[in-house]
Design a protein around this nucleic acid. Structure first.
Lengths: 240, 240
DNA sequence: CGCCGTCTTGCGTAAACCCGCAGCTTGTTG
DNA sequence: CAACAAGCTGCGGGTTTACGCAAGACGGCG
């Protein structure tokens, strides 16, 4: 059995290397990549079926890398090992995991023991292992209670990118008014008003910009999500 | 001599601990804190004069912690050790360093050798050591060439927070029109138009929102800067 | 002192945005 | 099938933005 580690921090990389050795005696080869691009290449060359992947790498982040890897070989097992549990990451991951694929999401703050358990569960038993803390987010995010629908999230991303209502309408195939409806819906859920109002009419917020800010502060959005969205936008623009 | 390490990643923390021991034989005690809050407390209790500080910690980030520490004891020597060289961080740091204080900014990707050198230069020789890569940013940022003035940065933050023109005017003591002038200035520098235009009238951007996005993508803004700005805003709102 | 560049401010306008109201199309349920 | 909730759409109007134009204000400099 072979394991591929994709992680840009050398300290974390060698820690992972040891953890893999300790948890998986049946693993005879460990290869390492220090960014997403190299990870994709190695995965292809070695036909890797077992990957431990950091999210948040400088050159090409884990979500991007995982997406292309899964596109080529959907049965690949990937354990995401990340510092944060931003909703943006969680949502990003669950959007790309293929049907029935085994994967995991473990935080770097987890104990050695938990990491090892996750490694065995995913790579040997083909089970999904989601960190408790992440799990909470996922439920809230995918179930609609208190969370955001896909369409709401979609429009959030669109205004975060700086599109006008009209441009959004064109992009998503909606009327202008529908876009604005969704925006209102979003403003409601993000509590833009409460933060904004504060009785007096002087301290008003620009709802559109404020919504993006709040989303950022709540980690509904983060740099990596923006980056991905921007790339998709450019693609769409090029395709006219 | 005593050294305080403030860093939330255990691996990095112990790596730092070793690096300090190796680089500074004259150091007899090393103490560690795993977040900004604890760091502030320990610095106060031990009257620490030598600190290695991570930026980007969950509970209270390095810039906040450094600010309160420097407020109490401006001659403290602080080495910032960070993963990234976002302009937002660089700007944030240089805004809080007291006159004549010795400090440093070294990237985590730097070699052991460079880290040790920096430790000695700052703690023993009281010199400032700024990583080459960071240095570039700093010059561009503080010199006005190609960089952003303080007033431009200020207004960028204000729209990122989601304030209306009117609110900004009130907050900064300007007329509405002046605020809008600065905005136009900002839009120019951020190249919002070029990205926006693309000839046809359909793909237009919302300038205000787009400016914030571009700033984020260029790392002129990041989560930590937003968080700080939001705190200041709340403070201002409370002070009526 | 007069000239000039930078910054501020007011006026006015076209566009974009926020949103209540009301008519339609769906999919769901009893 | 009737009834109802949820989403899309057009209309209308009040507010906010973006920005050209032009009149001061301030500071340096020959």
């Amino acid at each position: 059995m072979k394991v591929l580690i994709v992680e840009d921090d050398p300290l974390h990389r060698s820690y992972l290397h040891e953890a893999v050795n300790a948890a998986l005696p049946e693993c005879d080869t460990v290869i390492e990549a220090e960014n997403g691009t190299a990870g994709e290449r190695l995965a292809r060359d070695h036909k890797s079926a077992h990957i431990v992947m950091d999210l948040q790498m400088a050159s090409r982040n884990g979500i991007e890398a995982a997406r292309t890897i899964w596109k080529e070989r959907p049965e690949t097992r990937i354990l995401f090992w990340s510092n944060y549990s931003d909703e943006a990451y969680v949502r990003g991951v669950s959007r790309i995991v293929p049907d029935g694929a085994a994967y995991g999401y473990v935080l770097k703050s987890a104990s050695d023991e938990r990491l090892k358990l996750a490694l065995r569960s995913i790579f040997i038993e083909s089970q999904c292992v989601i960190d408790r803390e992440v799990r909470g987010l996922q439920q809230k995010s995918l179930g609609q209670t208190n969370g955001f629908t896909d369409s709401e999230y979609e429009i959030l991303v669109d205004i975060a990118l700086g599109l006008t209502d009209r441009a959004i309408a064109k992009r998503r195939g909606l009327s202008l008014r529908s876009v604005q409806n969704r925006l209102q819906q979003l403003y409601d859920k993000l509590d833009v008003y409460q933060t904004a109002g504060d009785e007096h009419e002087d301290g008003r917020f620009n709802l559109r910009a404020r919504a993006v800010t709040i989303a950022f502060l709540r980690k509904l959005l983060n740099y990596s999500a923006l980056e991905r969205a921007e790339a998709e936008l450019q693609e769409w623009l090029d395709g006219k």
